[in-house]
Design a protein around this nucleic acid. Sequence first.
DNA 1: TTCAAATACGTGTAGCTACAAATAATGTAG
DNA 2: CTACATTATTTGTAGCTACACGTATTTGAA
Lengths: 149, 149
Amino acid sequence: MKIEEEIRQGKFQSEYHKLAINLTFTANWLTRQVTQGLKPHKLTPQQYNVLRILRGQHPNPASINLITERMIDKMSNASRLVDKLLAKELVERTTCPLDRRQVDVKMTKKGLDLLEKIDIESKNWDDNLKALSKKEAQELNSLLDMLRS
Amino acid sequence: MKIEEEIRQGKFQSEYHKLAINLTFTANWLTRQVTQGLKPHKLTPQQYNVLRILRGQHPNPASINLITERMIDKMSNASRLVDKLLAKELVERTTCPLDRRQVDVKMTKKGLDLLEKIDIESKNWDDNLKALSKKEAQELNSLLDMLRS
DNA sequence: TTCAAATACGTGTAGCTACAAATAATGTAG
DNA sequence: CTACATTATTTGTAGCTACACGTATTTGAA
């Protein structure tokens, strides 16, 4: 459905204004789907993002700083997200012995196992994007990169 | 900057997976800018969205239902957003006499004046998107519409 | 008419965001 | 070595989201 119909707005001030709204709307649409897919595993998209970053480092630990740097949503509060993951025993947190200001965060086996299970399902989530051909997806990626110039 | 560098991830599983991340990341980037622009006026993007919908109806009132239907983020809780706007005296809320389940929400003069002031500034916000030509913006809009199929 | 279903809205809760401020450890200029 | 800046993280607060449930009102079928 065209964005004009989705939010029942006939006309936009400009193509750029329309773009701003279309981009936000489409990202929300996508996030809703990921949220749904993660729900059976009691993970939020942000927690999932942190887990994947930690797996990327495994078996090395990651600091809160490193996590923040790599998160999709950089303003997210990694500290509190790690708290939640800790409560679920998906990660472990220790003070870094070399720099006691830092925290070493590391996946547990339970966390790795969970991610592995989600991996399988998540392949299907991307299918929601397959309304576009691979070439169109590339083009969209390139336009988004350009947009942020 | 390419998305790979933004979140320091060298390679993605697929072009589609990259697209999902790029889309979310870019929308966050954009929202941050709008949030900044609105901050001097003590409005959040969602409150701003509601105000603009109400202006579209003015001088007619809008129900909570109508507002929700037209919001960019449809899961937003229009009821509570209207509360906040009411506290700032930017809107007024009365029970609809024809259907007492409904609420009539309407802009106040204060609300209209505020929007007018923001209108002027907001023209500059869209400039952040002008890294793309008009033609590229159209193409991006079209790809986003297709993506949601 | 009557009562169950549908509709419109409000509220409660857990989790997230944005931002500022606090705390603690480390680095560094003199 | 000391004072000060810097760095890494945590905490506090206001506002938003997602979802479920609650309340009041209206609609409509028997």
